[in-house]
């Protein structure tokens, strides 16, 4: 119950958010459908992990905090009078931030970098990015041409041009929630094609 006091500081939302993706996830969570939690992992784990990793945390800390965030959020969502007032991402981020700040203070670690408005694009200094350029990168570059034009546009603008997902969505007439899901599907499609490529097996055997 370390975080129980923190969980209580969140102001209860007062009106229903219009974002259809958020709405769909919340409905799934309310009804006990585990797909809702799965979607939270797919869409928001990276955001929370970035926050933790950039603030002296480890992968295990990121996993631990994310689970605590989910327990808190799901508990709230399942209350009869729950309504979301902000974007779901902001809601989850604020819980995570306060939980992590609480833990940092407890462990007397100083310094905090707010990453909420930063896109979680891996850069060269990313803890998840390796330093070396490898054959797999060439393969990804090659397979990239095989995915749909729309996916190429989304991924290129996000990962190469470092545009905000929100801006890409606006330009392509998608809501922020929809473009987030689109990007996720595009990455899945690219990953699937890369893993199905004959060179992929060869590279992994090396």
């Amino acid at each position: 119950m370390i975080f129980s006091d923190i969980a209580n500081i969140y102001q209860e939302p007062t009106y229903m958010n219009e974002n259809p993706v958020d709405h769909q996830i919340i409905q799934a969570i309310k009804s006990g459908d585990r797909d809702g939690i799965k979607q939270l992992y797919q869409l928001y784990f990276n955001m929370i992990a970035t926050l933790i990793l950039k603030n002296n945390g480890t992968r295990l800390d990121a996993e631990d905090i994310f689970q605590e965030v989910l327990v808190t959020a799901i508990t709230k969502v399942r209350l009869a009078d729950f309504q979301l007032t902000s974007r779901l991402s902001s809601y989850l981020y604020s819980i995570a931030k306060n939980m992590w700040l609480y833990r940092l203070r407890k462990e007397k670690k100083i310094g905090f970098v707010d990453t909420e408005n930063q896109e979680n694009i891996p850069d060269d200094n990313s803890p998840e990015g390796s330093d070396s350029f490898e054959e797999k990168h060439l393969l990804i570059a090659k397979v990239f041409d095989q995915i749909s034009e729309e996916c190429r546009k989304i991924l290129n603008e996000y990962y190469f041009e470092k545009k905000a997902l929100k801006d890409i969505g606006t330009q392509m007439q998608y809501t922020e929630g929809s473009i987030r899901v689109k990007k996720l599907r595009c990455m899945e499609s690219l990953k699937k094609k890369v893993e199905a490529h004959p060179d992929y097996i060869k590279i992994n055997e090396l």
Binding site: K136, H137, F144, M187, L190, K191
Partner: peptide, 14 residues
């Protein structure tokens, strides 16, 4: 998936 994202970023840069 996060690691794959880092790989895609590098691949697209190239």
């Amino acid at each position: 998936n996060i690691e794959f994202e880092a790989d895609v970023t590098k691949a697209l840069k190239f």
